[in-house]
Amino acid sequence: MSLIEIKNLHASVDGKAILKGVDLTINAGEVHAIMGPNGAGKSTLSYVLAGREGYEITEGSVTFDGQDLLALEVEERAAAGLFLAFQYPVEIPGVTNATFLKEALNAIRKTRGESPLDAMQFLKLIRAKAKDLSMTDEMIKRAVNVGFSGGEKKRNEALQMAVLQPKLAILDETDSGLDIDALKIVAEGVNKLRSPERGMLVITHYQRLLDYIVPDVVHVLANGRIQKTGGKELALELEAKGYAEFGISDAAA
């Protein structure tokens, strides 16, 4: 059974159509990449799936693990196993990373009918996961993303993913703002989470990230629709030719 099935999804912001009929199916165990020029609707797609306010769904459906995803609240989507790694992780002064993640994990466990982890169990878990990402205890105790460098923020996203163990992880421009060393650490963290039960959707502008997180399927999103689908070689092709053939000239590609 497919993990997520997006059918003919249309979404608009302030009356302006951004997604114009996206069709995309991801099965458990697969890693898909979405590439596309600026303004193609990549971030809109990730926010619509995560349930952010301000996006109007005008047509289409999303079925996630057998449920109507679009009918769920933001936190219900997370509890159902959807995870969005933010392009720009949010700083939350006054709330520590540890408190935040413990509340999040226990809320999700509660929905799954599992008992909450106590402080000791949680600390043990988060320390083990943080070590994999070369994160210190001090970073766990700090306020969420406050004073973190770009690379630390992305590692923090990977840490949250590792703790929450989602069924589908959407990585929105995870490579933006990262130097090559930070990129490798984050990609390694993500690759550890690849499993036959888990799907991933990697959204990126550049092919570079896909050297480290190698996708099974690559899609080109332009002008609000999936324009082309292929294997990992499609990413290399786009890197060489740019997005011109999709009617968009993009100097950055």
């Binding site: 349930g51 306010e53 939350i92 935040f100 993640l101 509340e103 999040a104 929905t111």
Partner: peptide, 20 residues
């Protein structure tokens, strides 16, 4: 949105942010 996207229910997220 960030808190809720990680599974923290809306009311709890409010309490966390107001407390902070």
């Amino acid at each position: 949105f960030y808190l809720r996207a990680r599974g923290v229910p809306r009311d709890m997220a409010r309490v966390m942010l107001i407390g902070a």
